[in-house]
Nucleic acid binder design. Structure first.
Lengths: 161, 161
DNA sequence: AATAAAATGTTATAATATTGCATTAGCGTG
DNA sequence: CACGCTAATGCAATATTATAACATTTTATT
């Protein structure tokens, strides 16, 4: 279980993520209901952030029942609360969390080109932020780091042009 | 000219910001029109991020003419392009830029309590991000760092409770 | 004054998100 | 099992943020 992008067996990502979610909900005694499962599956369909209304459409396609926006948002809220997905503020979109077992905000590398997101949780970034913040007497609670750039795969591709 | 919050003469901030803007637009040969000036003044009214529609309302109050949303957004786009304001993605809101003379994305410390924003541009953060990103072959273009926490002033206040 | 470019006005609408209330499902207790 | 409680979902309406498309006005320049 890692941060992916770079060619990989994505079905494995999905299966893993769903299994982890099921297990985690069991352990926490919270309910992994159908809609929550559908939404999570949708988020994990790939490593690109997906918007709430896209999720809604996807579910409408699959299940010939169209959930209303609040239904999707509530499922997303549940998943966010349980650390199963992250929200990318700069994109108004959601990605699966690579490690829901411990709460963390995570840092996100967003490829401008393929739009894939790599999730990190780099101590070096957190401490840099804390250090800088401390100089202003500011105590960090939740850092939000969303970095747009170009991933290895895409640079390789454009190099070969 | 610095990052403020902590009690300070805010009129000075405003005057400075407006003067810098005027001068910078002159130098760049771009127009600092009335609506742009109004929007910038609104953003600088305090150190809290302000939403586009709030700006719209403020201007409606002052000038008994209500600009339409695109008018405000276009002014904001101009100000963003010229580095005179920053957009805080996680809040869908805008703050004045402390140093419009050179382009930079900036890092933001957002106080959960008073909602004031301190703008930094800390090399230590940028290099931490680059270092972490490089490990995944990711090349950073525009880092976006928005940190929620508690500022010095607010901690002092709550300590005295 | 004529013209072109830039800026603004105007209307409509898209995209994202939430509120409030009705209904249903799941679960524990008597 | 029936009851009642709580959590979850359904549903309608609406709030909030943002943009598209096109008309008009302003400005700078000739």
């Amino acid at each position: 279980m890692h941060n992916m992008p770079q060619p990989h067996d994505h079905q494995h990502c999905i299966d893993d993520a769903m299994a982890r979610a099921r297990e985690l909900c069991l352990r926490r005694q919270v309910k992994f209901t159908r809609i929550r499962e559908q939404v999570l599956a949708c988020v994990w369909a790939n490593h690109q952030p997906v918007g709430a209304y896209t999720i809604l459409e996807e579910i409408a396609k699959e299940s010939d029942r169209r959930p209303a926006p609040p239904t999707v948002y509530r499922a997303l809220d549940f998943l966010l609360d349980n650390g199963l997905v992250h929200r990318i503020a700069s994109l108004n979109a959601f990605v699966g969390c690579k490690d829901p077992s411990h709460h963390h905000q995570g840092h996100f590398l967003i490829c401008r080109q393929c739009r894939n997101v790599i999730e990190l949780d780099a101590d070096i970034i957190n401490s840099a932020i804390s250090t800088a913040a401390t100089q202003y007497g500011f105590v960090v609670e939740t850092p939000c780091v969303e970095v747009v750039g170009c991933c290895a795969g895409c640079r390789e591709l454009s190099d070969n042009e």
